[in-house]
Amino acid sequence: MTAFLQNCFAGLSLGSTYALVALGFVVIYKSTGVINFAQGGLLALGAYLGYTFSNNLAVAFGVAVLLCCVSAALVGATFERIVLRRMVGQPPFAVIMITIGLLFVLEPLVTAIWGFEHKQVNNPWNIRTVEAGGLVFGVRDLWTIGLTAAVVLAFFLFFRYSSLGLAMRVTAFDPEAALAQGISARRVYATSWAIAAALAALAGILMAAGPGGLTPSIGFIALAAFPAMILGGMDSPAGAVLGGLVIGLAEALARGYQDELFSWAGDNVSVIVPYLLMILILLIRPYGLLGTKEVRRV
């Protein structure tokens, strides 16, 4: 039982990271109809910027986290302004390819600036742990879960009550009607990219503070967040958070019971568990757990 709970805790921490990234996917998808493949690149960029702030410029870790989120948000909004704005009205797949192009530019950029070496971000948590009820909680994991909960809550409040959040929801629902009401679609698009990039950067710096440290391959985590987004339903922010947690739990449990249950399926089954789970759920619910069923007319 202790082992099970311990795995669940690890899953929640991992799932929080997925949830942050997946929420970023959904924010962009909902307002612009684009799947942002560059999320992994933005995540890596954010994490490395955080490293620079925290280690090279020696600002406090909390400030570094804030700064890296803000600068990633600026990068996201700038990219939207310079490139994606021109693509409005083009077929969605062309726009997706553009985000893949951005990913391919960001990845070498990151390695060209910071190199391939394994880096350790200065942070107040390190490997400290607290024990309670026979379980060991990593301080970083606790902070990851807590920060994610706070950020997600803040996002939902913003989305529900602020006028910009309302504008985002309206634009997602019907862009033309929104324009007719005087809502600036440009501002909405730029904001969604900024929010998504900031969420990715936060996920990145939280990951980088963990035991894995910071390597250029950190962006791969965003690929595993795709199933999280799909599982929850692509147009549902709540679904993204739910999907992230489910995927995180499933992956951590598969890793925990690898030797006992999954040795027949080869090493590291946990890596493909998100995708298998996604396929299973899509067979039953083609629009994800909380996604809206698309109404199609001839």
């Binding site: 795709f226 298998l276 996604m278 396929i279």
Partner: peptide, 10 residues
């Protein structure tokens, strides 16, 4: 569309 793209990615 996108759902199919991600499943084939899997």
């Amino acid at each position: 569309g996108h759902y199919l793209a991600i499943v084939t990615l899997g």
